[in-house]
Write a protein that binds this DNA or RNA. Sequence first.
DNA 1: AATATGTTTGACCAAATGGTCAGGATCACG
DNA 2: CGTGATCCTGACCATTTGGTCAAACATATT
Lengths: 212, 212
Amino acid sequence: MNPPRAQARKPETRIQKRNHEAILEAALDVFSARGFRGATVDQIAQAAGLSKPNLLYYFPTKEAMHSALLTGLLDTWLAPLRKLDAKGEPITEILDYVRRKLEMSRQMPRESRLFANEILQGGPRLDGVLEQELKPLVDEKTKVIRDWVDAGRIAQVHPYHLIFSIWSLTQHYADFDVQVRTLLPKGETDPFPEAERYLVTLFTRMLTPTEA
Amino acid sequence: MNPPRAQARKPETRIQKRNHEAILEAALDVFSARGFRGATVDQIAQAAGLSKPNLLYYFPTKEAMHSALLTGLLDTWLAPLRKLDAKGEPITEILDYVRRKLEMSRQMPRESRLFANEILQGGPRLDGVLEQELKPLVDEKTKVIRDWVDAGRIAQVHPYHLIFSIWSLTQHYADFDVQVRTLLPKGETDPFPEAERYLVTLFTRMLTPTEA
DNA sequence: AATATGTTTGACCAAATGGTCAGGATCACG
DNA sequence: CGTGATCCTGACCATTTGGTCAAACATATT
């Protein structure tokens, strides 16, 4: 009778699971393409193949869909950084991180745009997430990088800006996809192989310690 | 009697000029912060200190304000790239371009976000601009870079991806400002000085030809 | 089969929003 | 100072949109 809320943790029925997923999938499509305010519940409903009231049976509000997406995807989104291993070989670790992040831009451009849309507008619906989820992780990993620098295993770099640069360069290929594809010469239909080569070169040159 | 359209090119009165400017200024504020769909004419009116009908006296539609902004700002936005001089010293030229672009992110974050918002959503309101304005300029400048590479004056790099990387890295500090400021340690209130140092290092290492 | 529980929807509502309009206020200028 | 052009606004309108609800429909359980 009552909409299935996330509190009582009743075992989900098959229908619930199916529709829940269909809605989030559709919502990701629409939100990432038009932003929160630009998306309408009707559009999401149509994309999900359900009626509008039916969506609001599963999610109390449009906000709830958006927020379910954001929090649900955050872990996936941060997984590559989590894998950065203090015990690994520094340059390999960082290059692997770059590759994984670029791969995410290729495979999950909608997720990238969802976050981009949100942060662009000051992250009103992200609020605590940055402080509470992202910052601790970044603080931890910048420390790892700082140690590598101090040990002379990679060149002198500002750890935070290194991470920003990895994010910016990799996500660019998802977020600004239209622009990239418009500007690239006709022949190159898929920007990613070349992008990977470029970024690997860039970070190799940036991080390899100079003789002296 | 009739709203001042951009056709007859009548000499603008003082009032027209003042209000036109106030509206565009307000519109930039609101559009850049909330996106096209997220902005309301009322918000812009309030920000401009004018009444809603009065805005629509100067601009026929909300779209018209947005499009006036986009086309009006495009030249400013591309100016730094235009200045890239084929006759200059390659690395200096490129580093100067990076600095100018970063400076624009610092001084004109709203403009950066306006374009970002637009391109993120596939640039529905940008349409021909990318093809007709941006592409020719980029094609021209990538040619310059390619010549530098061929002459061995800078290291081997993919010219288009070099430009993408400059855009992405510099605009990141405007577009993702909230994130950058949230993550940076408390002490560093202004990310830009450190960002400049980081980017200059990065592109120096990236572009300096290797001995051999 | 009866009943309870879960799912779906057409019809509807209130608020927000882009835009209009008739008329009033103000300004430029002869 | 009078008159036509420009500028401005309150009131209004049509549409869109997030959300509600009662009732119908489906499914599981006994």
